[in-house]
Simulated assay, not measured.
Amino acid sequence: MTAYDAIVLAGGAAKRLGGADKPGLRVGGRALLDRVLSACSDAGTTVVVGGRRPTVRAVTWAREEPRGGGPLAALGAGVRHTEAEHLLVLSADLPFLGADTVGALLAAAGLGDAEGAVCTDGDGRDQPLVAVYRAEPLRRELALLAAEHGGLAGLPLRLLTHELRLSRVAADPLASFDCDTWEDIASARARIREHGSVLDEWITAVKNELAIELDVDTAVLLDLARDAAHGVARPAAPLTTFLVGYAAAKASSDGGGAEAVAEAARKATALALRWADETETP
């Protein structure tokens, strides 16, 4: 993947949310800002323009001048802390943004004479805060706008994007879904809990809460819980998975990692099946 830095704009007034701390609002148990930071976890440098707060990973903090000066002023403040040739620019209220969309934007921004790539929503509209820009033309246009208007505060993003040659990326429509109102927040929270995604969302939230980076095969653990519940007793399911986690943690201290989880689960599953076999009449 193309090397890049990320700039996340997190300093808006959130007027349609009654002035709530939008980056800190939780969807699926995780702050909106943390969800965005997880989508760009492989960025070289990540700059968050906004008020300092605890985050899921280390970032560089910046503030626009004047505060509340709008997205171009915030972008100008963030660019000063970056060095990469490609800059991922995101708003802090994208609950469904994923690494796949980031990868697609980076790929499109590197094609031909493009000066960047912007995500389009389900209606085909450009989303300039879900985009990758080449650093040199971005810095050039920001400097020209600042000189022409005496600064960047209050200027609309379209003054920037109209001057750049941008590729368009029609990503998953949800990738650019942003949360501007309480209705948007409610919709995002409801969608997170849909049957097809709720388990993955829950596991990610737990790992985030416990500061666990280990990737595990949830299907293996679910099979173990089923075998323990059916072959031993229902309460055995959560207790067994806990013990597997404890054993894996001990093994991981010796470098076992995800393999330690799989091996502990394999042993416990085999035990549960042997236990169940003993109840069958010969």
Rank of each mutant, 00 (worst) to 15 (best):
R67M: 11
G68P: 09
G68Q: 03
G69W: 03
P71N: 11
L72F: 07
L72I: 07
A73H: 04
L75A: 01
L75S: 02
G76E: 10
G78R: 07
R80D: 10
H81D: 09
H81F: 14
H81T: 02
T82V: 14
E83Y: 05
A84E: 12
A84Q: 12
A84G: 08
E85Q: 13
E85S: 14
H86R: 15
L87H: 03
L87V: 15
L87A: 02
L87S: 01
L88I: 11
L88S: 05
L88R: 09
L90N: 04
L90A: 03
S91I: 00
A92S: 15
A92T: 11
D93T: 04
D93K: 07
D93W: 08
L94T: 06
P95G: 08
P95V: 05
F96T: 05
L97C: 08
L97T: 07
G98E: 14
A99F: 04
D100S: 13
T101C: 14
G103C: 02
L105V: 06
L105R: 05
L106M: 04
A108D: 05
A108L: 07
A108N: 06
A108H: 05
A109K: 02
A109L: 07
A109I: 07
L111E: 15
D113N: 12
D113K: 14
D113C: 06
A114Q: 09
E115D: 12
G116E: 00
G116F: 01
A117F: 06
A117T: 07
V118C: 13
V118M: 10
T120W: 07
T120F: 06
T120R: 14
G122I: 10
D123R: 15
G124E: 00
R125S: 13
P128V: 09
A131P: 09
A131K: 09
V132S: 08
V132P: 02
Y133T: 04
R134P: 00
E136Q: 13
R140F: 07
R140C: 05
R140H: 14
A143K: 13
L145K: 11
A146R: 12
A146H: 11
E148D: 13
E148S: 13
E148P: 01
H149F: 15
H149A: 12
H149K: 03
H149N: 13
G150L: 04
G151H: 09
G151N: 08
G151S: 06
L152E: 01
L152N: 03
A153Y: 02
L157C: 12
L160F: 08
L160D: 00
T161C: 10
T161P: 10
H162I: 02
H162A: 15
E163P: 00
E163H: 14
R165N: 10
R165P: 03
R168H: 15
V169F: 02
A170L: 11
A170C: 08
A171C: 11
A171S: 13
D172A: 12
D172H: 06
